[in-house]
Amino acid sequence: MKNEFNVIADLIEKNTRVLDVGCADGVLMEFLKDNKNIDIRGLEISKNKVQKCIEKGLTVIEGNAEFDLKQFPDKSFDYVILSQTLQAFLNPELVINELLRVGKKAIVTIPNFGYWKVRLHLLLKGTMPVTETLPDQWYNTPNLHMCTIKDFVYFVKSRNIKIFKSLALNKKNTSLINSNNLGIKNLFSDLGIFLIEK
């Protein structure tokens, strides 16, 4: 399981109710179900991936987070997870609001466009950055709204969303983000992980 998922799993308390939005093939869901006794549900847009989840015995609903989160009642999950998909929505702000309505807390991870390799790629090559975390070309990427760790922190603050924990990931290394090291973390991390609440 990738390190990002280990970090997310550590943020989640045992025996809780969790919704994984964009759960893909259910690797994280399966881990949470088996190791933390989580009552877990998934929402996934790809039919193939939904089938993979069913193969694992996971409860998944085929659907689109931008339209289908509204069926869940307010605060019906302890945590809602959104892993590396925020940037792919037409309206990320609406999705964030929905995550925080449905979940008591939300865990959002974002591929960091402020990562030095991304910056350097654009600076030196003059073409849209392609990295391990952002593997697609400009013409076939699903990403519509790329942001940096800094952008995301500024955004949640401007919307009066509470940040419980912010973590920066760089390969195997995880570190805490605070107001003093934000600039550094924004430069040296390829992924940001945020535990938030409204």
């Binding site: 939904v50 069913i54 996971l58 409860t59 998944v60 609903i61 659907g63 069926q71 869940f72 009642p73």
Partner: peptide, 18 residues
Amino acid sequence: IVIALNSIGANVGFVEID
């Protein structure tokens, strides 16, 4: 049907087959 079930927190999966 899925929406009605989700709105009461029931355990429901859903797939639309091509």
